[in-house]
Design a protein around this nucleic acid. Structure first.
Length: 402
DNA sequence: TCTGGGGTCCTAGGACCC
DNA sequence: TCTGGGGTCCTAGGACCC
């Protein structure tokens, strides 16, 4: 198989070039911004749409930012100051107070994401989704795909995307997904990199193990404890040692990955496994003292998940909650019911039961609601079970929190 | 100055059935 | 009555990715 990994530089509107700009802060940041603008300039109607038309220079600077958001992405000019994805905005404000803070524009990302993907499937139909801005492509059967080792096709795709959307795109070309993904990082932004099997030693082995998609901070730490820093050092270990040290599955995978081997196909179809909604509060909430506020938020999350399920046509039967405490410890509780549902009240009721089993002594930072074991709506044949919605003991008991 | 939101997959133990 | 093994479902936590 010949694979591409294409990653669009999604939010880098041309006018951001050269300016230190960070994007982040979540939905709340945009709401705050709209509220402020409405107050300052009431003659204009402020919406996400009008916001989009304001030149970047008019957006607020990071300096003095107080809130819990993180950076979604940053321009290269901002990255010079050491800020980057996933960093807290308050920390970023210290490092680069002059950076312009733009709100995250989900509607626009979705729009451009669809355009970018449909341009690609027009050219190369075997495409796998990897989130809003990244895809794998199997171009084995694309006419002309082999010219200059794939470079001609990569350039064609880049040009088509740029002409239509104004977005740049980094492409990695390799014999499999693992290597294509790695290659796509080599010439960011707007680059093309080709890795052939015989390039493994020169181009891949010098890289840090962390560059392998699937090796995160924990695995990297463990590798380092064994003196393994680079992919080449990993490749020098024998299979049995890796299996003894990391377990059968992970060991064998590490061995294969370090030798550039990966036989996963490009998957064009996938069904969702779960849908969830979660929110981090502006301030930590206490289960007893902030009971009412928590209850409202909880209900809203359930309604949002239900709406997501209904809009996308799914029903689920495992309903769960997620809590993050002030010390960042996470707890989850799941409860499976005897039929599939997308009903907000039913999700709320079941999630409430799950929540009762969680410890609620510490202050809460985040609350989430998840529905799993999904099925397409209409396929569900739970039949009679639908009638017998369980009434559970203790429901309505006095003194309960939710 | 603490660290978003939406996902997937894996592991591991226990229940329960055959 | 005991032992054991396999399979599946459920639950909780954790690693990782975009």
């Amino acid at each position: 198989m010949d694979a591409f990994y294409a990653s669009v530089e999604l939010l880098r509107y041309p006018q951001l070039k050269g300016l230190p700009v960070v994007i982040g802060g979540g939905r709340r940041h945009e709401d705050d911004l709209l509220a402020r603008l409405t107050l300052e300039q009431p003659e204009q109607e402020w919406t996400s749409d009008t916001l989009r038309r304001i030149p970047v220079e008019f957006f607020p600077r990071l300096q003095g930012y107080a809130g819990r958001g993180v950076i979604t992405t940053a321009t290269y000019a901002a990255r010079q100051f050491g800020v980057g994805s996933a960093m807290g905005l308050m920390k970023a404000a210290k490092l680069c107070p002059q950076a312009i803070l733009l709100p995250v524009d989900f509607a626009q990302y979705r729009h451009y994401s669809q355009r970018f993907k449909s341009i690609i499937t027009d050219i190369a139909p075997v495409m796998e989704n990897r989130g809003v801005d990244e895809v794998y492509i199997d171009f084995t059967d694309v006419p002309g795909g082999q010219r200059e080792g794939g470079r001609v096709l990569a350039r064609l795709i880049q040009k088509a995307i740029f002409d239509d959307t104004g977005l740049t795109c980094s492409v990695g070309v390799a014999p499999n997904k693992l290597l294509a993904k790695m290659a796509s990082e080599f010439n960011k932004p707007n680059g093309i990199a080709i890795v052939r099997e015989e390039d493994l030693q020169d181009m891949v082995w010098p890289l840090a193990c962390r560059k392998i998609n699937g090796i995160g901070p924990k695995a990297d730490e463990k590798l380092k404890r064994h003196g393994i820093e680079t992919i080449g050092q990993l490749a020098a270990k024998d299979l049995q040692w890796l299996i003894d040290t990391f377990g059968q599955r992970t060991g064998a995978w590490l061995y294969a990955a370090s030798h550039g081997q990966d036989d996963r196909p490009v998957e064009t179809e996938s069904e969702p496994v779960s849908m969830s909604r979660e929110t981090t509060f502006d301030r930590d909430l206490h289960a007893v003292r902030d009971r009412e506020e928590l209850g409202r938020i909880f209900t809203r999350l359930c309604e949002q998940v239900a709406a997501d399920l209904q809009r996308k046509g799914y029903v689920g039967k495992t309903i769960g909650i997620k809590l993050r405490f002030d010390d960042f410890k996470i707890v989850t509780r799941d409860l499976s019911i005897d039929h599939h549902t997308a009903n907000a009240q039913e999700i709320r009721r079941t999630a409430g039961l799950a929540l009762k089993r969680a410890p609620l002594d510490k202050r809460l930072r985040l609350l989430g609601v998840r529905v799993g074991s999904l099925q397409k709506q209409g396929v569900a044949l739970d039949g009679i079970a639908q009638v017998a919605t369980k009434s559970v003991a203790n429901e309505g008991e006095t003194g309960q929190l939710f």
